[in-house]
Design a protein around this nucleic acid. Structure first.
Lengths: 124, 124
DNA sequence: CCAAAAACGATAATCATTACTATTATTATA
DNA sequence: TATAATAATAGTAATGATTATCGTTTTTGG
């Protein structure tokens, strides 16, 4: 049975207030402003917990560090190879679940990343 | 300018003949059957090279190791949380790149992973 | 208040990936 | 074919993100 923790609340708050898909260590630094002696291990443990419960998304963009997303509405990600920015693209309906259901796969989460160059980087 | 290497050819061959989305160390073991003294670093270097040139896909499913895919036709992946299997689901067209283009994002690659339980694991 | 269980902070350990370097293989050109 | 330039390799050391451990603290239900 899950128990309340101030640390987990603070981590979730950072994610819900960010559109930047931050890494664990970024979240750690943010939460430290409020809870200075929080441990990095605590951040990782809670991110895994929140991911497993479906409250946040865990996103790998292949840059060596996992990213986290507090937005769990249906959307995909555009990841710029040059500046590293991740841009959200909302979807009207979750087409992934439909594909999965067709195939007998019981889907719970989708992480879709489109790689390329953002408009800004593409101009240069 | 890229030069030929027997090692790179062998790595690519393993990927083109597999549907299992193998990890670097699995590929290493496979290629070792043909080139016993190949170095793991060589495998990683070539996988990165092949990924950058678009000949293979690099897929993160959040299990701590990167997976590689020799199939670059438009498809998404169903990743079973229980048995770890990754199942391909072909797409008629790469709709995700189309979304990107609409938004002014210059897409080159899409990696889409749907998490859940495969039919087999869901029954148990 | 009390006891059980969950969560914590601090730190050590893991392990996938990358960097380094002397050597070898490839390729264009003479 | 010999040569020179340079890409690629094998072997190994280093990196760094993530996970495990463990004694202590916090939460929660009775």
């Amino acid at each position: 049975m899950r128990k309340y923790s101030r640390q987990r609340e603070a981590i979730l708050k950072v994610l819900k207030n960010s559109k930047a898909h931050p890494s664990a260590s970024f979240i750690y630094e943010e939460v430290r402003k409020e809870i200075p002696n929080i441990s990095l291990g605590t951040v990782y443990r809670n991110l895994a917990e929140l991911g497993k419960s479906g409250e946040i998304l865990e996103i790998s963009v292949g840059d060596g560090t996992e990213r986290y997303d507090g937005d769990i509405s249906p959307h995909i990600h555009f990841a710029c190879r040059k500046c590293g920015k991740i841009i959200d693209y909302p979807l009207k309906n979750d087409m992934f679940s439909e594909f999965a259901t067709e195939s007998g796969f019981a889907a719970d989460t989708t992480v879709c990343v489109v790689y390329g160059l953002c408009e800004e980087c593409n101009r240069k």
